[in-house]
Amino acid sequence: MMGPELGAQSYLQLQGSIPLLNEDIVTGQGCKDGIEYSLKIGFDRFFRWNLNDVESGVRAFLKMMGVENVDEWLAFEFFFLKLEHLLAHGYLTGQCAEDPPFLKVSGENIDTLVEPASPTVVQKSYLVENIGKGKLPWSVQYSDDAAISVSPSNGELAENESAYVVVEVDTGQLQKGVYRNKLLFENGFRKAEGLRFGSLGSTFREVEIKVVQQPDVAPTITGFEDRGDGFGLIEWNFDASSLDVEMRGYEIYLQVDGDPVWTIKRTVYGIDTVSTIMSGLPKGKNACFRMQAYGEYSTRTPNSAEHCVQLSGGELT
Rank of each mutant, 00 (worst) to 15 (best):
C96M: 03
E251C: 04
E115H: 10
K283D: 12
W73F: 15
G34L: 01
E98P: 13
I25V: 14
V114W: 01
E159H: 13
S162W: 05
K135Q: 12
I131E: 13
M247L: 15
V114Y: 00
S149K: 14
D144T: 14
F189L: 01
Q141V: 09
D99F: 09
K285L: 13
L200K: 00
L20H: 10
F43I: 10
I221D: 12
G28Q: 10
Q292A: 03
S312P: 15
Y250G: 08
G230R: 08
A163S: 15
F204S: 13
F43P: 03
L51G: 07
G198I: 08
P152K: 03
W73A: 07
N237C: 01
S106I: 15
L39H: 01
D53E: 07
L39S: 06
D44E: 06
V211M: 04
G232F: 11
Y179T: 04
Y297S: 05
S151I: 11
E156K: 10
S298Q: 09
K32T: 13
I25E: 10
F79G: 09
C31W: 02
F61W: 15
R266L: 14
R248P: 03
M278A: 13
Q13S: 12
V166E: 09
C308N: 07
S17Y: 02
L103R: 05
G284T: 12
L81G: 13
K135Y: 08
Q29E: 12
N160S: 15
V54G: 06
V256T: 12
